[in-house]
Amino acid sequence: MSEFVERAAPPLAETAASRRPFGLLLVAIPVFLVIWLVIWPAINAISRTIWRVDADGNTGFDLSSYAFFFSDRYSLDNLAVTLWTTMVCAVLLLVICLPIALYLRFSQGRLPAYVQALAILPMFVPSIILAFAFIRVLGPNGMIDILLNAVGLPKIRTPYLTPWGPVIGLVWDNIPLTVLILLSGLGSVANQFIEAARDVGANAFRVFWHIILPRISNSILVALSFSVLGIFSSFTLPYLLGPASPEMLGPFMQRTLRDLQDPIGAMTQAVVAFGFCILFGLFYVRSVARNRGK
């Protein structure tokens, strides 16, 4: 323990090489946790869905649960609605968050501080509260309907219990993370570049397209891969706001495991979900690696 304490406060002048063991110790905990809580269960799930015990008690290579998933209309519909929700959310997040981040980066004064606080707010609202607030506001005979009715307008077609319900909830829930990542990316765009471009007569769009966008494309990729990973495997919002069918993979997995008591089916769905998440994760890893290479 005393060794720990001594190492915890190295003199500033010490070389980077002598700090290395301490750095490795620090990373060891998260790496161990990831192996224990994520990688091991993942390997376990994959092996248990492909090496299965058949009726005679022999263990053998068996892909039938995957064959079922990919030939079952119902499972495929659920996968399709999950991918659809993820893509729509990603596009909407980019469309909503990029202007907010640009505004926060290039404006000064008190108002942007309030806007930033407002943009970060969803981070502190638990999704179950969000879901019930959503039902009260956008749900049938909710606040919007009452307001519309007060001015003599017809009711809206409520998104509650349709595929758009989870989309709206998930987009709102993911705004803070996306805005923060984009904002940190915009921090690397120096004011001089923009001033220089303006001096030679570039308009706002050209500045955005030729100066800002190339510099933050990495951040956009990171922001999108982060939120896409979360949305793909989300549970609470699709469960509470979405339709009974098609359902997203999160509620589908939970239902298959608990209500249908079919662990192999649920694990198969989980492995399919891993597969897609690894694809999204690769974008992130690639962009981080490319960034490091610079």
Binding site: L161, T162, L240, P243, A244
Partner: peptide
């Protein structure tokens, strides 16, 4: 049914 076949959760 409600909303042409919606089911509450």
């Amino acid at each position: 049914l409600y909303d042409k076949g919606a089911y509450s959760s």
